[in-house]
Amino acid sequence: MRRARSVLAILLPIVWVLSGGDSLASDTGGSAPTELEALMQGFAESGGVRARFQESRYLSILTDPIETTGMLYFAPPDRLARHTTSPGRSSIVIEAGRVSLRDETGQRVFDFSTNEIAQALVGNLMVVFRGDLKLLRERYSISFDSAAERWTLDLEPRARALRSVIERVQFVGKGRDLAAMETREPNGDRTIMKFSEIEIGFSWEPRDLDRIFSVDPPDTTP
């Protein structure tokens, strides 16, 4: 039941906002292809990724942001785990179209393989880590800017349905490191996820993969 409740909690507002979507935007297409492709190629070659994250959610109904911290793991091509350690322990694991969640209310699993909006919502970060520029271009109008070593990747959803949920996603980085991801919603809410202690090139053993990409998070990071 909780599993279903969770699905409904996520999908019902999507349905709600679909009726109030705004006008279609044009593809700005202002990226620097060479640099962007090189960057994404770099991500694609990074292998497994481990990073510490600090997330701040600025909601229009709250006076102060909701702060969470934890560890993020990515194993190519399609595994992503986010283990939150503060303020409470929770985990979300995305794997082959299925999302598993565990928080203080329990564990639930749901299948997003048939819902493109939900895939986009939960999978943006994974697509970037994977360096899947083709899929990014299918889903978003892309703007890419770089100066010195710093770069900014702006994504604006192409589909009206997705655009009614996400206004814009911005990735910021330095060199081949991803520093932050900001997601803006049409109602002004935004979420900033900052990354630190980024380590790349992991190739975990199957036993470690099972531990990391489990909603029972590892006590120690492999």
């Binding site: 969770s6 909690a9 996520i10 507002p13 999507i14 709600w16 906002v17 959610r57 909601l59 229009s60 109904i61 909701i66 969470t68 986010r82 939150t84 303020p87 409470g88 929770s90 985990s91 979300i92 969640l101 928080d103 919502l121 949920v165 997601t183 919603e185 109602n187 809410d189 979420t191």
Partner: peptide
């Protein structure tokens, strides 16, 4: 604050 609560705020 839950990981799946992004859209609850809507």
């Amino acid at each position: 604050a839950q990981p799946d609560a992004m859209l609850l705020s809507r």
